[in-house]
């Protein structure tokens, strides 16, 4: 599996489903569970992660040859933390409501395993362009997953989507979906579903 020989297009799309960071690699679960109770929160968190992932991969891709191997992890974390703080301040300044809703979880992107893991597993060993494509792909995969969670949980838990009620008064929201247990159960089902599909397609190949 020589990663360098793969087509750039593949680096981009692999993160969407096949190597989805959350559903397949089980990275960054913490934030997916925490802020996916509404669609708006999901999108904001997803975009923030994509932003941080993109710029971290860009900067680390540029300077990786200058960093001695022994201190690479602290160096990566500083770069990531910088962009996370930038994103945090930006949201506070321009989108105070979203910043309030996401609360403590924006700063925690810094320890979101997706970002550090991609630097370790990919950016470190690859050229700049594939690294950036990988970052965009993984970020998008993260957005897809968290958005899916947000849609499911908001519809079932609030009976609304984007804050707009979509059912009549007959619908009693399933409160637990927006509470922590609902987050665990929804993600478990999504990962299970993903496993199911992967297994089926592998069986077909055989």
């Amino acid at each position: 599996m020589a990663q360098n020989s793969r087509k750039p297009g593949y680096e981009l799309v692999k993160g969407f489903f096949k190597e989805n960071p959350v559903l397949v690699q089980l990275l960054g679960i913490c934030s997916v569970l925490a802020v996916s109770n509404t669609v708006v929160n999901s999108i904001s968190m997803g975009v923030s992660v994509l932003f941080v992932l993109f710029f971290s991969s860009l900067v680390i891709g540029l300077i990786k040859d200058l960093i001695p191997n022994e201190v690479r992890i602290p160096a990566y974390i500083v770069v990531i933390a910088t962009f996370v703080t930038v994103a945090d301040l930006f949201l506070k300044a321009k989108f105070p409501d979203i910043s309030k809703a996401l609360g403590a979880y924006i700063p925690l992107i810094v320890v979101n395993c997706i970002i550090l893991a991609r630097q370790e597993a990919f950016t470190k060993k690859n050229k700049l362009l594939p690294s950036i494509l990988d970052a965009i792909g993984m970020g998008t995969g993260y957005i897809i997953t968290i958005l899916l969670m947000g849609i499911i949980r908001e519809i079932l838990g609030f009976g609304s989507i984007f804050g707009v009620k979509i059912f009549g008064s007959w619908f009693k929201p399933i409160l637990v979906m927006i509470l922590p247990p609902g987050a665990f159960l929804t993600l478990a089902m999504l990962i299970g579903f993903m496993n199911f599909i992967t297994r089926k397609s592998e069986e077909k190949k055989l």
Partner: peptide
């Protein structure tokens, strides 16, 4: 190691 880290932290 020290130089690079210091540099990164300063820029950050």
């Amino acid at each position: 190691m020290v130089i690079v880290l210091t540099l990164i932290i300063t820029i950050a």
